[in-house]
């Protein structure tokens, strides 16, 4: 069954996929034909359920990897369609005309990774309101710096005193060295 799916995709789109496990098929495709593959999978091959759209930031290669996961309700097969887009100018075709719920994923990716989807219905923000900084799920977004600049330090905690030592002094008990006690080495 998995071979049939791969052969059919190869015949129509000239792409090679691989069988990852008995219920998983992985396909890597060029970004221009991804929406055609997804439409074909849905309309012609019965993969009518969109499971997930994920994005991985490969900052070393200057690429974003987009993963579209679709599922076939009768054959119980899952196809993962991978594609890579440029990280500097991230634009990807909008697929919310194929599946309505893709709109939610794309709005989230626009905010979190800064990927543009031309023609995406709904300009409204999804999670982050009035966000001015770099899209936060990018690897180079510095969470610590942002937190330090945005939020105030709680008073009374600047000097990083050792609380354990203080407890020991007051109670007179000796506290065990936890790191040593539970170490496996």
């Amino acid at each position: 069954m998995q071979e049939n799916i791969l052969n059919q995709l190869n015949k129509v789109f000239k792409i090679k996929g691989q069988v990852k496990s008995p219920l998983r098929i992985k396909v890597v495709a060029d970004k221009d034909i991804v929406s055609s593959i997804l439409l074909y999978l849905k309309a012609q091959m019965g993969f009518i359920h969109l499971n997930h759209i994920s994005c991985v930031d490969w900052i070393e290669d200057n690429k974003f990897e987009l993963v579209y996961i679709v599922w076939h309700p009768e054959q119980k097969q899952t196809v993962l369609v991978h594609t890579f887009i440029d990280r500097e100018n991230p634009v990807m075709e909008n697929i919310d005309t194929i599946w309505d719920q893709a709109n939610t994923y794309e709005r989230e990716m626009r905010e979190m990774f800064g990927i543009e989807f031309p023609g995406l219905v709904g300009d409204r923000e999804f999670i982050l309101e009035d966000w001015q900084e770099m899209p936060p799920m990018r690897r180079d977004f510095d969470t610590k710096r942002y937190a330090q600049e945005t939020y105030e330090t709680r008073p009374g905690r600047e000097n990083a005193r050792n609380v354990r030592l203080e407890i020991m002094k007051r109670s007179g008990e000796e506290l065990p060295d936890f790191a040593k006690k539970y170490s496996r080495d």
Binding site: E125, F126, I127, P136, T143
Partner: peptide, 12 residues
């Protein structure tokens, strides 16, 4: 409308 509970777990 969501956005009241975003805790950036996936980032952390």
């Amino acid at each position: 409308h969501v956005g009241y509970l975003h805790r950036a777990f996936e980032k952390l």
